[in-house]
């Protein structure tokens, strides 16, 4: 019941100390788990070639969406070039690291925090974006970072993410023609959002990040996939959608983290 902000001054460092001896065991356990019970992909990919092709297509779709979103933001703030260059436009450094465990405890129902085998010694910063397969957002780095480990908050735990919904094959280069939405967790591992747009919504649309609060490198990256659409009785022109995360916390074994480099 005590104010946790005060306790955190000593509990967080103490937790980091306790996590040191457990790190090798969790690393071994995680590797063994991945061998014994690998995560079952919900889709059926038959061959490595198909996997590579799909990955490549997704990557180019992401690059296309990223370019369009980037152009939209640039046009909107053309009057302030300095602000544009400061908004995540600087260089980034990429750090590849592995998931060596999850937060302990009895939490269930929602994804646990994931422990990374990289920390401040590699330059990790709170809020840095973690990617999977170059174009899917896996989460953000949590606030507690030790020298050699950190926690990753899975993307499905995040709330208030602004996205744009793209069909499988984008038909227009006008980014404004694609509906936007703000994702809120449903508590079932998915998000819901209310979309007020004249554009047609279809199941399978890809939700791509369009949130200016995130680093620019994350713009256009895949966040989720629309799995359900239902009308809202009170608002005939709006629809409520349900979005499933592209990346499941259970399926991650290694990720790439983009750390914005400080400007000289």
């Amino acid at each position: 019941m005590l104010p946790s902000r005060w306790l955190a001054v000593w509990t967080n460092p103490l937790a980091l100390v306790v996590s040191i001896p457990t790190a090798p065991i969790t690393h071994f356990g995680r590797a063994a788990r991945d061998i014994l019970r690998p995560y079952n992909q919900p889709w059926d990919l038959n061959s490595p070639e198909a996997l590579a092709l799909r990955s490549e297509v997704d990557l180019y779709k992401t690059l296309y969406a990223q370019a369009n979103l980037d152009r939209e933001f640039l046009e909107r703030s053309l009057a302030s070039v300095g602000a544009i260059s400061a908004r995540g436009g600087g260089p980034v450094r990429l750090v590849e690291c592995s998931i060596v465990g999850t937060s302990a405890g009895t939490s269930g129902g929602t994804a646990q925090l994931l422990r990374l085998n990289a920390g401040s010694s590699l330059g990790l910063l709170p809020g840095a974006t973690a990617f999977l397969d170059n174009d899917s957002i896996a989460g953000v780095v949590g606030s507690e970072i030790s020298s050699f480990s950190a926690f990753l908050v899975p993307v499905e735990r995040l709330s208030g993410i602004a996205v744009r919904l793209f069909p499988d094959v984008p038909k227009s280069s006008d980014i404004a023609s694609y509906p936007g939405a703000v994702l809120r967790p449903t508590g079932r591992g998915t998000w819901s959002a209310e979309v007020a747009s004249g554009a047609a919504l279809t199941i399978g649309m890809t939700a791509r990040l369009a949130d200016e609060r995130w680093p620019r490198i994350a713009l256009g990256a895949r966040v989720g996939e629309v799995i359900a659409i239902e009308p809202i009785e009170q608002a005939p022109l709006a629809s409520r959608i349900e979005v499933r995360p592209i990346v499941s916390a259970n399926s991650i074994s290694s990720i790439t983290i983009a750390i914005p480099e400080s400007q000289p």
Partner: peptide, 17 residues
């Protein structure tokens, strides 16, 4: 100690003993 609690949507965590 090994179960940090997510306190904010921005990824802040805190250890509650």
């Amino acid at each position: 100690l090994l179960s940090p609690l997510l306190t904010d949507a921005d990824g802040s965590t805190v250890v509650i003993v």
